[in-house]
Write a protein that binds this DNA or RNA. Structure first.
Lengths: 150, 150
DNA sequence: AGCTTCGGTTCCCTCAAGGAACTAAGGTAA
DNA sequence: TTACCTTAGTTCCTTGAGGGAACCGAAGCT
């Protein structure tokens, strides 16, 4: 948790950042997604302090994005896996990958590529409207108060 | 900047977080997007420390997501506006809104709604494949090394 | 001359990040 | 049964970023 608690703000961006926006947290989620599931492997891959990693994992399990899963009875050992809530957060990270590839990758190009199962092509995500399927960027919408407006 | 510099890592998620992942930064971008463009207005709306706000704005201008724009000659005053790079970062924040609405909004419902210009309906973003237009979530892709793999 | 607005900067305090060392529970080899 | 290894943390200390309040400077307003 940063100094300010974003999780209680009446804004979905703030709450998302409160749950998964602390330093390292998105990278932990990415690593678990690509199959790095164990404490020592995460620590080695990220180069993160063991103390901070333990805090982040505890927070993510408490928040419901990760779950602990035993992979060995003797000795008893747990690994971390994405829950459905965590899987869906990958949508946010894939949007972040798209943006980072476009604006921060430079001439060298993106470090990883995504091959879409359905069509077999190298692709990136595009945001479209859930109702009509047309492109939906920030310039394509009006913002208006919702049920729980402040 | 957090202690660790994420902007130089060979990962678009890390670089995105390095540029726009510090505490408050996504909320500053959201506010500028919805038309809160001036220092004092941002400070009042967010309740952020003036010191931290000044740091964040400077960082976002340096990174190219925001630009300063004069809105008064006498007295000389600037306001902040999203660049194209900043506008496109809104795609990430809209994905975050979608996730936050689904998983953290609770019974009260989302605080804000988005009306899509093209179809006029209340909608949220769905990620689709840039090549075939079918849904593209993290479970729909294989990850493979790109041109600038580590 | 004095008050207000805007857009910051400066100062100080606290608490989180980073890093290294330590711990604990069990397994393996001699 | 002694010694060492692996895994998954915890503890301790130092440093530096976040928070808050006060201050500042340029311009306008009365």
């Amino acid at each position: 948790m940063q100094r300010t608690d974003f999780t209680t703000m009446n804004c979905s961006i703030a709450r998302s950042m409160g749950v998964a926006g602390e330093p390292w947290t998105p990278l932990v989620i990415r690593d678990v997604y690509i199959g790095i599931n164990r404490f020592d492997d995460l620590q080695r891959d990220l180069g993160i302090s063991r103390k901070v990693l333990a805090e982040r994992l505890r927070h993510l399990v408490d928040a419901g994005l990760l779950e602990r899963r035993p992979y060995s009875e003797r000795p008893p050992r747990d690994e971390y896996a994405l829950t459905e809530m965590g899987q869906e957060f990958m949508d946010v990270l894939m949007a972040m990958v798209r943006w980072g590839d476009r604006w921060t990758a430079g001439d060298a190009g993106p470090p990883v590529l995504y091959r879409h199962h359905a069509c077999g092509k190298i692709a990136h995500v595009e945001p479209v409207c859930s109702e009509c399927g047309e492109p939906m960027h920030s310039t394509d919408v009006d913002v208006q108060p919702g049920p729980h407006a402040s």
